[in-house]
Design a protein around this nucleic acid. Structure first.
Lengths: 238, 238
DNA sequence: CGGCCATTTGAAGGAAGTCAAGCGTAGTGG
DNA sequence: CCACTACGCTTGACTTCCTTCAAATGGCCG
């Protein structure tokens, strides 16, 4: 973990996203920036949290993607969810907490300590909303895996990612950068890499998506959402 | 919702289970019993929470089973998780919270208001642990649906239920009562009722489980857990 | 007894998995 | 500059697990 300094522009997407969960005041932004100044960088494959080990202080993802993963004894791997810029790792209200899942960096990740809860009410609100969202993402993932076919799983996931990244301002020209290989996509959708490949081809030929060298574009998100019945869930009344 | 009174013996499993999450003192037990005295009864199929609607006060399941469900437009149904006696419904730290899933009673359910957080430290600790467990259950469900075959999904789920019910003292002779039809089991495991039926037959013939008229017995839980690689996750250091 | 619901069974089809090989491209080192 | 490697993507042939459709059986209760 190397200490590095960042210009505000480099890290702002994360704070932008956090601020959308609950409106942050001047004090909260300052508390965040103080932590951002001490952000650290992790290479791909590094572990941010290890299942069964004590959860230290919560961390805030500033850039890069991480994944909550679990391995079966015979090597099967399941990615349970992604952690994107502006999202928290290891946030919990429990004292003696132990990580329930390993969190692995998928590419180079920049993160910082999350300001401790209890000091800023607005930040606590954002944490609470963030936690509720995380739960909603897990539920959506369960529905994808339990009741959707390969096409629906992939498009549903991509639409969710589009929404989440959009909130962090990480969507440009209707597309986003994703550090995902087809194998990772298989591990998150519960499919095999081969089948993911074939399904992507169908989606590409049909003009639904473009996916080239880690850049994903969805032609018509609303139409696609309509077609597969995707809904972005609210976790809070306005 | 009819108001009914309960003898302590009728409701204790729930409190027993809650007390296992964090040691409760005399004051907490009394606060719980005060709420239990106003418990209410809901028939099967009743909704305890409706997706998209405001979450009122959290409730504590005293007896019966509930399920968090989601329907797709074409009628496909997915049960995302079960809520068992001693577990909370609608607990969240957010102010303007909105339910992220509908919760439906699977059979007759008795529940009461959960004592509000903030008044008893030990109870808050139990809530926090309960929430962490709930997350762990969702993650386990994701792994089952994403990377396990029919046999593993069913046995894995049954082992989890055995553990959870055992903590509430609801396991007798190595078995428990489950208000589940094979159709519900299909909806939770992401399979079809027909395939659940065939898989259960295999498990029965092999002597792994008995399942007759809502009574489930697992012959050798430890051996079965070993075989499919089931692990009950800790969420807290001892 | 008759109706209803859950379970069971059979036969056939399909979505996704497995195995194995062939590409393309980027990085490395002689 | 060109092997040589490594990794990710692509393709083909074949298999399997699970689904679908449809009908039969069994238990429970009015």
């Amino acid at each position: 973990m190397t200490q590095v300094a960042h210009a505000f522009t480099g890290v702002s997407p994360a704070i932008v996203r956090l601020g959308k969960l609950a409106p942050l005041g001047r004090a909260e932004i300052e508390a965040l920036e103080a932590e951002v100044a001490n952000s650290f960088r992790l290479p791909g494959r590094a572990e941010l949290l290890h299942e069964g080990r004590a959860v230290g202080r919560a961390r805030l993802m500033l850039s890069g993607w991480a994944a909550r993963v679990r391995y079966l004894e015979d090597g099967r791997r399941q990615i349970m969810s992604f952690v994107l810029p502006g999202e928290l790792i290891g946030h919990c209200t429990q004292a003696q907490a132990v990580a329930v899942s390993t969190v692995t960096a998928l590419d180079e990740v920049v993160a910082c300590a999350a300001p401790a809860p209890g000091s800023h009410a607005a930040l606590d609100a954002a944490y609470a909303v963030g936690q509720a969202r995380e739960e909603a993402y897990l539920l959506a993932q369960i529905v994808r895996l339990g009741r959707m076919n390969a096409e629906e799983r992939i498009t549903g996931l991509l639409l969710e990612l589009l929404h989440r990244l959009d909130e962090a301002g990480l969507v440009r020209d209707g597309g986003f950068d994703a550090p995902l290989t087809q194998e990772m996509l298989a591990d998150v959708t519960g499919l095999t890499p081969v089948h993911v490949n074939r399904t992507l081809q169908v989606l590409r030929r049909r003009g639904d998506i473009e996916w080239k060298s880690h850049r994903v574009r969805i032609a018509d998100p609303d139409a696609l959402a309509e077609r597969i019945g995707f809904v972005a869930r609210r976790v809070t009344a306005e």
